[in-house]
Amino acid sequence: MKAIIKYISSIFKALKSLFRGMAVTGHYISHPKEIITQQYPENRETLKMFDMFRGEVVLTHNERNEHRCTGCSACEVACPNGSIEIISKRIEMPDGKKKKVIDKFVYHLSMCTFCNLCILSCPTDAIKMSQDFEHAVFDRSQLTKVLNKTGSKLMEGVR
């Protein structure tokens, strides 16, 4: 007799536990406001990443097309996986002295791990992380970027 009571009560307990679970999912299907997914890319306009987000390395230029990179290669050394290559050249200054400036700031996005070490190592705050996260391209070679714009030069007073 005891066994039968136990048997029946186990069935009721089981059904109760199942209903408890169904109550949770039932709650969510009846509350469509709880939906958490976003409609990307439709919400591109409103989608804003946090300021700290590390999207990719960019060399900041001001409106006169000047940057702050002196070509010291600190970031190149700090980079753990060789994503940054700095190709510098010597130009003749108006006063006749020769000065080392960057020719190309090459950035391999495909190798970057977004560790932020280059940004920390930069003595002149020339580079920063942008919040752009849409990196997908159809050709791998497009992931190798030259960060300094054509015709840009070193900002006055930065050394």
């Binding site: 946090f50 700290m52 590390r54 992380m129």
Partner: peptide
């Protein structure tokens, strides 16, 4: 993950610790 993204700058591979402290202060 949003908290991480705001403070550490990345969602998963945060690299927020550096030997000798933290990479930046909290947001």
């Amino acid at each position: 993950i949003d908290i991480f993204e705001e403070t550490c700058g990345a969602r998963l591979t945060m690299n927020y610790n550096v030997p000798g402290g933290l990479m930046f202060d909290i947001h």
